[in-house]
Amino acid sequence: MSDDPLVRVDDLHKRYGDEEVLKGISFEMDRQDVQVLVGPSGSGKSTLLRCVNRLTEFQGGEITLDGTPVTEMDVDDLRRQVGMVFQDFNLFAHLTAKENIMLGPRRVLGKTEEEAAERALDELDRVGLAAQADSYPAELSGGQKQRVGIARALAMDPKLMLFDEPTSALDPELIGEVVEVMEDLAEGGMTMLVVTHEMGFARAAATDIMFLDQGRIVEHGPPERLFENPEHERTAQFLERLTRLHGETR
């Protein structure tokens, strides 16, 4: 079982009405892999992520997590095992940072108030926000919000973390603190599927980069190869542009 890849996406097809958004996506991720996903707007990056934790249903192909097709798993159980971090943070506005992190462990994992609180403080500490435990989202900066968002997902002990443009809504000077947390996480062995334009992160942390365009994988490989020696001219141009725009933000 554990020889299986952690994630296997096999010939994934996804339609919205008549429009086919994902046109046969296949790839695998081993444990501790960091898969970076890039591609122009509308290429299907978010949709692919949302298929993995079934925030959206897909029509063809298969996604397995730890050998089990996600479509055969209880959906709440699947999401328990897959953490997600959103571009717009989506912190629960009426809860403090600590309470944001506690909600899942309390209501989904059935932990006690004390256990959940202790874990939340640990996670806040890990992302450098122990002092902000009792702050409400509206009282936090964008970078702090996103770090709480990451801590919230981590408190569920996920096998896999999905990141959908976690730094795109941030002011440039706040991107670094979030990328740093993500790099630590990658170093710590977390399996991560990351949509991002931060090429600094991709170079530093990615096992593989996947270039998606119009619902198809154009090119897929380790960062060295995609940056230095891409097969397709399009890949080179796209990565070059991203590097120019989002390369050295720190």
Partner: peptide, 14 residues
């Protein structure tokens, strides 16, 4: 905001 429901569901809440 719809993101609130989505985030709650993503954490595993029914």
């Amino acid at each position: 905001d719809g993101g609130q429901m989505e985030a709650a569901r993503a954490v595993g809440l029914s």
